[in-house]
Design a protein around this nucleic acid. Structure first.
Length: 881
RNA sequence: GGGCGCGUAGCUCAGCGGUAGAGCGCUCGUUUCACAUGCGAGAGGUCGCUGGUUCAAACCCAGCCGCGCCCACCA
């Protein structure tokens, strides 16, 4: 006998272990079935499960589980990401607590230390995915820095280098002065801050007392100025173009150049140009061949290229000094308050500095072209579709991808330098050495590039590197391209776009046919959850309290397209109650000996009640299947919820009670078999969303096959069952339902009709049972306007209109209501037609140009429609009376 | 500046041309025998505003008002 309530904690671990040990998650189990593949967005190896993961992986698991049940060879490829900066920072923090830095350890020891940390905490996230119920094929788990994937990364780097698609370049990068590494544009967060706009006077060379006034938000960069730019059409400065200004405090001659970049509307119209410390100025510098003077070191302190007094000062310290010094020199014209955006590092949270360095770049522009085309051609589809716009916009304006990072944790760049700086890019040190020796004609000493690759470089290869590439494995052949990628839109640029580029370049095929972008789970303020903000909600706490199934169902029900999810625990509680409800339905079946009958044929049932619920089951199965196929997860959840609770529990089980409890032999047998069959079907339908509960209940309904639910067959119910149910004379079941649901508002059938109908439809014993509670029923009846003073004949409803009790056969009530509804629909349709005729006949072009007989036909048809409508309206009037 | 999206019940959100919906919360009643994590009955909405299209608009179109996100720029 089942307990009164479902206890998730007792069930989940046991069921998961059974699945995993039985090999149910393994792809290629029986060597048949079309492959269906999803690669997991690899979570940070040392991370832990947050709500975004919970949503993302629940949705993936639903697709994997339904595919598995449909007989597909489902592969959910799991794995984790080394997460360069993030992981390195964690370990550095740990070191800092011991008063050490990574420099103290040295590179090798530090990297060893990170591996230790990975070994220590690396199982956390995968353990948490298991708690969520994720049915990944764990036997194939990969890590972005394992041997195979590292080999893939090296090969991609070497190949792209040899194809000229990876190169070294000196240009401005976003430099993080705290982490001492370049970061990508995407890792820079612009933030509005209150600042000042300082106006400085730069003296004009050879013109005593004459100045040109420049405005800046960053006075300290003036030490690197090499020009002043004005707009070519700006009359105020026309005569100064070609002359020179003298840079105060430094004494450098600055060319005054004419450039469209200078906006006469902005500031003073004259702008100081610092090519080494501003992206726009860099471009101006290139156009005018200006000197680029780097005035910062890697910590953004003033370096030796500036006057001695400022050297070693922090940039903000330098700012104060420079403003003061210029003021003292009488060159500070004014200071305006100015609100502007300043770039901050996503992880370090310090101001990012544009800094001139040499870095490795990937030619994203070239790689993007096939990736754009693939989406244009529909070889990869975005769901919802409008994300393709975001994708296009970025891809069509893509910048070179800076792929080198000045970190220690990651894939070290496979480039070696000879004594004269010659570059050897090879798969490993030995081949590099050999190449170098050949190149120089003698043994030489090589230095390896100290940098590592951007984490997203290895992630970009994930869909094929995890399947064994560059080896030509059978997995690669079978499971690539994958079917669908499920991810949040926040990494569309970081990850999705780059997988498209790399997949197409190296595999010549898109990495996935569909990209489903789910909403972001945001915090209560609509803010993105992030570690740095400390606003992460813990899915594990919710699992602890309500069970994994309840959390999964909640996320599924809220996963409507194109809307952010704000999670509330009351919602999870509600779906926990749903789990209990289903549990109790199973318990009811158990108590009433509802077991599957191997010879049961849903198309052969006799009782109308049973035929009705079979029809409803069929509709629910279709609704769930269609919704999932369309990635409308919320609709799938709501379809099964509605069916299970309201159709099956509220109506079917209530109405079948009399039959089960005191019906005759054959009737009761059929009811039992039907109830068990419906349970069977709905457990299957619910399994992808609530795997634990359904598997736990399954044994009771698993006959005749007795196989576990996870690998059982997805319901494929014939539409004939719906038709069958609809075609039947649905007798009192449907009529009762109609009386309560649809007809009430029209015909004033009192709410108490449900009780009355049950009483009338029930046999003597049930009736007697209800009558034991006569007092309650009477009160209920009074409350709802029904009366039990006089017996109501079977098949009738009783209603009170204007204090007159009317007893009317239910069938009549239904017929009248249905007829009325039908007439109203007809009239509405005719009105539409008449309107169209009117429009056409009122169109002068039509009446004057169309052949007369055509116009006449239109008139006749209009007249017919009007006549028909009048007739129907009259009938409706009689009915209402 | 460019792009995307959202304003529907107290809260969180579905619906997106044909009689306004769900969950939670609220009110009243109810330990009845699967389930009080339940059951029954209710209250609560001019579907942001203004126009337009249509026989019919929460839904389509235009404009406006609020709100959010992404990208770019910012002397």
């Amino acid at each position: 006998m089942l307990e009164k309530t479902y206890k998730p904690a007792e069930v989940e671990a046991r069921q998961y272990q059974r699945w995993e040990e039985s090999g149910a998650f393994a792809a290629g189990r029986d060597g048949t079935g079309d492959p269906f593949t999803i690669v997991i967005p690899p979570p940070n190896v040392t991370g832990s499960l947050h709500m975004g993961h919970a949503l993302n992986n629940t949705l993936q698991d639903i697709l994997i589980r339904i595919s598995r049940m449909r007989g597909r060879d489902a592969l959910w490829q799991p794995g984790t990401d080394h997460a360069g900066i993030a992981t390195q920072m964690v370990v550095e923090r740990q070191l800092a607590e011991q008063g050490k830095s990574r420099g103290d350890l040295g590179r090798d020891a530090f990297v060893d230390r990170v591996w230790e940390w990975k070994a220590e905490s690396g199982g956390t996230i995968t353990g948490q995915l298991r708690r969520l119920g994720a049915s990944c094929d764990w036997s194939r788990e990969r890590f972005t820095m394992d041997d195979g994937l590292s080999a893939a990364v090296r090969k991609v780097f070497v190949d792209l280098y040899k194809q000229g698609l990876i190169y070294k370049d000196q240009r401005l990068v976003n430099w993080d002065p705290k982490l001492h590494t370049a970061i990508s544009d995407l890792e820079v967060i612009p933030r509005e801050v209150d600042g000042n706009l300082w106006h400085f006077r730069y003296p004009i060379e050879g013109a005593l007392h004459r100045h040109i006034v420049v405005a800046t938000t960053r006075p300290e960069t003036m030490l690197g100025d090499t020009a002043v730019a004005v707009h070519p059409d700006d009359d105020r400065y026309r005569d100064l173009v070609g002359r020179h200004a003298i840079l105060p405090l430094v004494g450098r001659r600055l060319r005054i150049v004419a450039d469209d970049y200078a906006d006469p509307e902005q500031g003073t119209g004259a702008v100081k140009i610092t090519p080494a410390h501003d992206f726009n100025d860099f471009e101006v510098g290139r156009r005018h061949d200006l000197e680029m003077i780097n005035i910062f070191d890697r910590e953004a302190r003033i370096n030796e290229n500036a006057p001695e007094t400022y050297r070693g000062l922090d940039r903000f310290e330098a700012r104060k000094r420079i403003v003061a010094d210029l003021d003292a020199a009488g060159l500070l014209e004014k200071i305006d308050k100015h609100r502007h955006t300043v770039p901050f590092g996503e992880r370090s949270d310090v101001t990012i500095e544009p800094w001139l360095t040499e870095q490795w770049y990937a030619d994203a522009k070239t790689l993007a072209q096939p990736a754009i085309k693939a989406v244009e051609d529909g070889r990869t589809k975005f769901v919802p579709e409008n994300w393709s716009k975001t994708y296009y916009q970025w891809m069509r304006n893509i910048e070179p991808w800076c792929i080198s990072r000045q970190l220690w944790w990651g894939h070290r760049i496979p480039a070696w330098y000879g004594p004269d700086g010659h570059i050897f890019v090879e798969l490993d040190e030995a081949t590099a050495q050999a190449a170098a020796d050949t190149h120089y004609g003698k043994p030489v000493e090589l230095t390896r590039d100290p940098d590592v690759l951007d984490t997203w470089f290895s992630s970009a290869l994930w869909p094929f590197s995890t399947l064994g590439w560059p080896e030509e494995t059978s997995e690669l052949k079978r499971y690539y391209p994958t079917d669908v990628l499920i991810t949040g839109f926040d990494i569309i640029f970081f990850w999705v776009a780059r997988m498209m580029m790399m997949g197409l370049h190296f595999m010549k095929e898109v990495p996935f046919h569909t990209v489903y972008m789910h909403a972001l789970v945001r915090d209560e303020h609509g803010q993105k959850m992030s570690k740095s903000k400390g606003n992460i909600m813990d899915p594990l706490e919710l699992i602890e309290e309500y069970g994994s199934d309840a959390l999964r169902f909640t996320l599924t029900a809220m996963a409507a397209m194109g809307r952010d999810i704000k999670l509330s625990s009351s919602r999870v509680e509600g779906y926990r109650n749903f789990a209990t409800k289903l549990w109790n339905a199973a318990r009811f079946c158990e108590m009433n000996e509802c077991q599957p009958d191997p010879s049961f044929d849903p198309s052969k049932v006799k009782s109308n009640l049973n035929r009705w619920i079979i029809g409803e089951t069929t509709k629910a199965a279709a609704a769930v299947s269609d919704a999932i196929d369309a990635y409308k997860f919320d609709q799938a959840a709501s379809a099964i919820y509605q069916f299970s609770w309201h159709n099956f529990c509220d109506w079917y089980l209530e109405l079948v009670k009399p039959v089960l409890q005191s019906g005759e032999g054959a009737d009761r047998d059929e009811a039992r078999a039907t109830a068990a069959w419906v349970m069977q079907q709905q457990l299957k339908l619910l399994h992808p969303i609530m795997p634990f509960l359904t598997e736990e209940l399954w044994p009771q309904f698993s006959r005749p096959s007795n196989e576990p639910l996870i690998t059982s067959a997805w319901p494929q119910l014939s539409n004939d069952l719906v038709d069958e149910a609809a075609a039947a004379d649905l007798d009192w079941v449907i009529k009762t339902i109609a009386a309560i649901r649809g007809v009430r508002s029209e015909m004033n059938v009192p709410p108490g009709a449900k009780i009355a109908a049950i009483l009338n439809g029930a046999n003597a014993e049930t009736k007697a049972r209800y009558e034991r509670h006569g007092e309650q029923l009477e009160r209920l009846a009074r409350l709802s306007g029904a009366s039990f003073d006089q017996p109501v004949p079977p098949g009738s409803v009783q209603t009170i209109v204007d204090e007159t009790t009317i007893v009317m056969p239910l069938a009549d009530v239904i017929d009248i209501a249905q007829e009325k509804a039908r007439l109203e629909r007809e009239i509405s349709k005719l009105a539409g037609e008449i309107g169209k005729f009117d429009k056409k006949l009122g169109n002068e072009a039509f009446t004057s140009k169309a052949p007369p007989e055509v116009v006449e036909t239109q008139r006749e048809r209009r007249a017919d429609a009007i006549a028909a409508r009048e007739k129907l309206e009259a009938a409706l009037g009689r009915l209402s009376a």
